[in-house]
Design a protein around this nucleic acid. Structure first.
Lengths: 179, 179
DNA sequence: TAGTTTGTACAGAAAAAACTGTACAAAACG
DNA sequence: CGTTTTGTACAGTTTTTTCTGTACAAACTA
């Protein structure tokens, strides 16, 4: 095995590692191969480049690169004289992590909080209503308590997301570690 | 609609919200229905209870409850005189979040770090070797630099996971918020 | 303007994940 | 000890996701 092959071998290990974990960023497998290829490629690539390099359809490249771009894992770049779309990796992995984290959990948080608000309103109405059975009232009380708990949890999660987004998190877990 | 139906309606909204987001905990949809049912049920349930209540196969209940238990989202409890396995939700949602977070990212971290270590070793060997082409050496240098960057990132992520696991995170994002 | 080139919409194929039903081993019971 | 109950392994089915190939609209070129 010559030097260049050894280099490729070392790269390939990392590429597979990335590919196997891209699902943590909500990306399909092909996006993982694509991302890891772009990571080692030192210049921006076109859809046709990627298609050829990975031996996959151009359609597939198009959809997965869009998914990667929406999650800000890759970026479109412009180069004079080049008509095709060019893409390269967004190389701030810390920010990538933060963006993905807020996106994934943020959706869940707002969905839950609005559901909780509505249900608590209904349950409170049930408590106020004198026509409601005592047993049902008892259950409603229990449910309201449970919803109070998870509402507090989601509030915490919301503040956690904020702490990531405004980089407060780096105060307790700093980036720089020279070990 | 009578009082009890209204209660169930309010519950159902929350249950669907939970079901739709259970994938964030790496759980299949059926586990979501199961979990949310257990959440409102005020006593532990057996596989047969769940199967009947959800109208799903017992096999399905068995596999998804195991998945939930492995992620510590539910717990097996014991009750005298009851032969069947009984399950109830683990109601510390903060800890659930932390456990899932560490599990999901922890796997990725150790996988990546070991891949990086190996590849960096190979690339360094390539640099030392006088038989290696200059061009290849140049590429190797670039790759080592890239791997240094992501190694630092994964070290950060590892410390982040630690900060969650030992609850340091509650220092900057405290649980108690009485709004 | 006509002729290319380029990205993506859409329909269908292939692969993966989720779920079901049967069968059976292990445990509990009497 | 034999009988019954209980959870799960496994094979097969359904559903969902991922990927491909064709077709076409928009953008660029000359």
């Amino acid at each position: 095995m010559n030097g260049y092959d050894k280099l490729l071998h070392a790269r390939k290990r990392i590429m597979e590692s990335i590919t196997q974990n891209i699902h943590l960023f909500g990306q399909p497998p092909s996006a993982g191969r694509q991302y890891s290829m772009l990571f080692f490629e030192n210049k921006p690539m076109t859809l046709d480049d990627m298609s050829e390099e990975l031996g996959m359809s151009k359609t597939s490249m198009s959809t997965s690169i869009r998914s990667l771009a929406e999650s800000k894992l890759v970026e479109r770049v412009w180069e004079r004289g080049v008509r095709k779309d060019l893409y390269e990796v967004n190389d701030d992995w810390y920010q990538n992590f933060i963006d993905t984290f807020s996106l994934r959990w943020g959706r869940s948080i707002s969905l839950h909080l609005s559901a909780i608000r509505r249900s608590q309103k209904e349950l409170n109405a049930l408590l106020q209503d004198e026509k409601t059975d005592e047993e049902v009232k008892e259950l409603a009380k229990q449910d309201i308590e449970k919803l109070d708990y998870i509402r507090n949890y989601y509030n915490w999660l919301e503040r956690l997301v904020d702490a990531f987004e405004d980089h407060e998190i780096f105060d307790i877990v700093p980036k720089n570690n020279d070990d």
